[in-house]
C-alpha cells in the first residue's frame, strides 16, 4: 500500500538500481565482445598458416628425450648451474630487500605513503627495457640476470610480509606493552613471528617466478644459462631442444617451490602442528 507523496521519494532507489543494472550489463557485453573478437582473431590467424599440423608445433616425447641425450653434458655442466646460481642469488637478495622494505613500511605511516607508489611503479616498468639498461651497468656477466630475478621476486615478498606484519593481534601487543616490553621487543617477539606464515606465502610465489626471471634475463643476452639454450634452439628451429629447455625450467621452478615448502615446514613447526589434518603431504600446494 503506497500513500500519495511517497512515490517521488521511492523513485530514486529504483533509478539507481536501474543505472547499476545497465552499467553491469554494458560491462558484461563489452567483455563478451572482446572474448568473441579475440577468439575469431586467433582462429583466422592459425588457419592462415600453411601446413599447420600438431607434429610441427609439438615434438614427440621421444624427440625431447633424444635432445636430452644429445645435450645433457652441456646442460648439466654449464647451463643449469648458471641459471640456478642466478636464481638462488636473486631470490635471496629479493628476500632481504622485500623484508627490509616491508619492515620500513610497517615502521611508519609516512614511509608507507612514500614507498607504496614506488613499489607499484617498479612493477609497471617493462623488465625488457630494464634488462638492456642493466647490461650497460653490469656488463655481460651474471649481474643483469640476478637483478632481473630480484625485480621479479621482491614485490610479492614485500607485500605479503607487510600484510603479515599488520596481522599481529592488537590485544597481544597491548598485553606485551603492559608487561613492560619495548617496541623493539614487541617487534621481534610478536610482530615478526606473526608475519612468518604470510612471508612464506609470498616467498612461494616469488620462488615460482624466480627461474622464469633468470631465463628472461639470459634470453636478452648471455653466454650461459637455460635462457641462452632456449634462444639458440629457436634460432636454429630446434623445437625439441626448446621444449627440453621449457621442461627443465618448469622442473627447476617446481624443485625450488618444494624447497621453500620444506624450509617452511621446518621453520613454522607451530603453524603445522595445528593444521596437520589439512596438510596433504609435501606437495606444491
Amino acid at each position: 500500500m503506497r500513500l500519495p507523496g511517497q512515490s517521488s521519494r521511492s523513485m530514486l532507489p529504483i533509478l539507481s538500481d536501474l543505472a547499476r543494472v545497465i552499467m553491469l550489463a554494458l560491462v558484461a557485453g563489452g567483455m563478451f565482445t572482446f572474448f568473441a573478437a579475440g577468439s575469431l582473431q586467433l582462429y583466422q590467424e592459425a588457419r592462415a598458416v600453411e601446413n599447420l599440423t600438431f607434429a610441427r608445433v609439438i615434438p614427440a616425447p621421444a624427440e625431447i628425450v633424444d635432445a636430452w641425450h644429445d645435450h645433457h653434458d652441456l646442460l648439466l655442466e654449464e647451463h643449469i648451474p648458471e641459471t640456478l646460481w642466478e636464481t638462488l642469488a636473486g631470490l635471496s637478495m629479493a628476500v632481504a630487500l622485500g623484508v627490509s622494505i616491508a619492515a620500513l613500511m610497517d615502521f611508519s605511516r609516512l614511509l608507507r605513503w612514500l614507498i607504496y607508489p614506488l613499489l607499484v611503479v617498479s612493477q609497471t616498468i617493462p623488465i625488457f627495457a630494464i634488462a638492456i639498461l642493466l647490461i650497460l651497468i653490469f656488463g655481460f656477466g651474471s649481474g643483469p640476470k640476478i637483478t632481473v630475478v630480484v625485480l621479479f621476486c621482491f614485490f610479492p615478498i614485500t607485500l605479503s610480509t607487510f600484510s603479515g606484519l599488520q596481522t599481529a593481534d592488537p590485544e597481544l601487543l597491548s598485553l606485551l606493552r603492559a608487561m613492560g616490553a619495548s617496541s623493539r621487543q614487541i617487534w621481534f617477539k610478536a610482530r615478526l613471528p606473526a608475519a612468518m606464515p604470510s612471508f612464506f606465502a609470498g616467498l612461494r610465489i616469488a620462488a615460482t617466478y624466480s627461474v622464469v626471471g633468470a631465463i628472461f634475463g639470459e634470453y636478452v643476452t648471455a653466454q650461459r644459462g637455460l635462457g641462452v639454450f632456449l634462444k639458440r634452439s629457436y634460432s636454429s628451429f630446434r623445437l625439441d631442444q626448446a621444449y627440453l629447455a621449457i621442461l627443465l625450467t618448469a622442473l627447476l621452478s617446481m624443485l625450488l617451490v618444494l624447497l621453500v615448502n620444506l624450509i617452511e615446514r621446518l621453520a613454522l613447526r607451530w603453524y603445522y602442528t595445528t593444521r596437520r589434518k589439512s596438510w596433504r603431504g609435501p606437495g606444491i600446494y
Partner: peptide
C-alpha cells in the same frame, strides 16, 4: 607504571609459535 603489575586478560593470548 608500565610493567609493574602482572596482567592477565580474558583471552589467554599465548604466543602460538612458542
Amino acid at each position: 607504571r608500565v610493567g609493574r603489575a602482572g596482567y592477565m586478560p580474558q583471552r589467554d593470548l599465548l604466543l602460538p609459535w612458542r
